[in-house]
Every structure is written in C-alpha cells, then in structure tokens.
C-alpha cells in the first residue's frame, strides 16, 4: 500500500532581513491512511513549517527549495494554486493552536462551519447549515443547533476548539493536521479535545498529524512519532518503540528531562545543556553536536542522514557506544 502522504527530502527556505534561513533541511516523513503521526520538537525545530508547507501556506517569504510532498498521488509542491485551494479544507484540514484567533469574530459559528461544506461540496446553503448543526453535535457541543447562531466570543476556549474540529471534519478530509491544538487549554479540557479528535478521525478513517511539544500527549495519542531538531527529522519510529528504545541522543535527553509522575521527586533532573539552535546560524555538521554528550569529531563536520537502526525505526546519528 502506498502511503497517503509521503514527504521526501523537503527543504524550505525563508528570506528574512538577516538573509536566507533554511527552516527545513531534507525532511522525509510518511503516513498511511488512518494513522496518527506526532511531530515533536522545540520552538524552531521546523515542526510547524513542515505542516504549513504541506498546505502551501508558507507565505511570500518562504518557499520549497527542494523535495516533494506526495499526497494521494499528487505532488503538492507542483500543483497550481487553484488545485491547492480545492485540496485545502476539503481533503486536508488544519486545526490551529489558537482557537481564539482562527475563528472570524464577526461571523456566526454556523456560517463558519457551513462554509467549507457549501464551498467544496456544492451543497445549498440551507443544507450546508443543517449539516453544520450535525457536526457540532458530533463534537459534543451542548444545544448544538441553537448555538449555530452564536458568535465565537460566546464560546469558551475548549468549545471553540471543538468548533475548529467540526470545521476540520466538515468535508471528511483524508488528512487532518493539528498544530498544538490543545496548548492553550487546561489539561482536563485537553484530554477531552484530544480524545474527541482521535475518536472522530478513527471513525472516519482519516489520518492525523499532531504537532506538539508534549511527550505525554504523544504517548497517549500517537501511532508514529517523528522527532525534529534544527529543521531536520532526527528520529522516527512507532510510539511504543520510540519510548522504550530511543536511539537519538536528543530524543533520549528529552525523555530523561521530563519529571515523571512515578519518578523520584526532588532529584536533579537530567538536562540537555545549552539552548535550541538558531536556524539562521546552525552549527556545522549535526546541529545537535554542541549539546550532545556523545559528540565526536565527525559530528561537527558531516550531517548524519536518517538511516534505519531497527525495522521501522530510523535515526540521524553517527551512533555511539551506549
């Protein structure tokens, strides 16, 4: 079976006042139908840029300089703007971090949920509006049909994110991309929203790309994980395998640095020394080398490529004796 989404060797550059910045450097990812892939990384790791480049939303300053994004048999880096508009919101839906600023404050919720259905499925407005009511019911908004007439400011943060999910599901997309969908929410609401998202995508057999920095969220919801650092994927594996057997020193460090609910309280936490790298001034060789406890001479000169260390488990590291 060919994957639903296959990103290969994708590089993205942004033109900034300080010159060109390479935000992505040879990113390769693949995702099958019905799977949930978590993309994990810190700020500046390139996880959001990866998502935006799938949708062609890099803006005027960013462009794909190399590589391809195969989605359902089409290379999204090559299709026309017109075609991308047909795909966006229809076959690929996006859920943003800030439900506050991604809804239009002057349109009713009903209008905003009905719009993609009307636009992409060529339904009459009244049919689309009716369907919007059903969608709000599916995302468990109380009094769904009544609330179609309400405006975003009348909804709480969690409810707004449910609306975003309803909009994303409106056209039964094959792929949903959620960029830090619950970072702005409380943990109890986060748990509600993520299980809703997971259950609904499973029901529809859609794939989900979950972009997050929270390794707990990844463990609970993801099938596959890609760890990003400095614009590159440094490790990818199935979630259970990755947590049991992390192979990249960065992944290992991340896992060790979070306090666990069954850990030893008060003990000194493991830390990864230093700071995440500045993309406009990346270290030569492996960009993790200045922070890596196992760095060798080779690491400062050559970039390691993503290579298989076990079935379905890849890492970009020259390796070290554990």
């Amino acid at each position: 079976m060919s994957p639903l989404l296959a990103i290969s060797d994708l590089s993205v550059t942004f033109v900034t006042e300080r010159g060109q910045v390479q935000a992505l450097d040879g990113v390769s990812l693949s995702l099958n139908a019905g799977e949930t892939l978590a993309v994990v990384g810190e700020s500046g790791s390139g996880k959001s840029v990866t998502a935006l480049s799938i949708l062609g939303l890099l803006g005027d300053s960013g462009s794909v300089s190399n590589g391809s994004i195969e989605f359902d048999g089409e290379d999204l880096t090559k299709v026309s703007v017109q075609r991308l508009r047909e795909i966006r919101g229809n076959q690929i839906a996006f859920i943003f971090q800030e439900p506050m600023s991604s809804l239009n404050p002057v349109l009713t919720i009903g209008t905003q949920v009905a719009e993609p259905i009307w636009l992409h499925h060529k339904k009459s407005w009244s049919e689309a509006f009716e369907q919007a009511g059903e969608l709000l019911q599916r995302v468990a908004i109380p009094d769904a049909v009544k609330r179609l007439e309400d405006y975003p400011h009348q909804f709480s943060g969690g409810m707004r994110q449910r609306v975003m999910i309803a909009m994303a599901l409106a056209c039964q997309p094959k792929l949903i991309i959620a960029d830090e969908p619950t970072t702005a929410l409380d943990v109890t609401v986060q748990a509600q929203i993520l299980s809703l998202l997971k259950n609904l995508t499973k029901e529809a057999n859609s794939s989900l790309i979950l972009i997050t920095h929270d390794l707990g969220v990844v463990a609970r919801y993801a099938d596959k994980v890609a760890v990003m650092y400095g614009g590159r994927v440094v490790e990818t594996a199935y979630a259970t395998e990755l947590y049991k057997n992390p192979q990249h020193p960065y992944t290992e460090g991340l896992m060790a640095s979070i306090p666990k609910l069954d850990g030893d309280p008060g003990s000194t936490l493991y830390t990864i020394e230093g700071q995440p790298p500045d993309l406009s001034n990346l270290p030569s060789g492996c960009s993790f080398n200045p922070r890596c406890p196992h760095a060798q001479d080779k690491c400062t000169m050559t970039k390691p490529t993503l290579a298989e260390v076990a079935p379905n488990h890849k890492r970009a590291c020259f390796g070290y004796e554990r």
């Binding site: 969690g158 748990a191 707990g216 609970r220």
Partner: peptide, 27 residues
C-alpha cells in the same frame, strides 16, 4: 483524581493500560 488522570504520561504502554476517565464539561 480527575486532574491527575487527565495528565498524559510520557509512556505509551502505561497510557494504553490507563482507563481514560474524562472529567466532563468545563470549569
């Protein structure tokens, strides 16, 4: 109890065993 149950742990196997008990509604 609900607050503790809502915190996802960074361990997929532990997570798979944990029964998901969601706290209903919002504050």
């Amino acid at each position: 109890k609900a607050l503790l149950a809502a915190v996802p742990e960074a361990d997929p196997e532990l997570e798979a065993q944990r029964a998901e008990q969601l706290i209903i509604g919002e504050i």
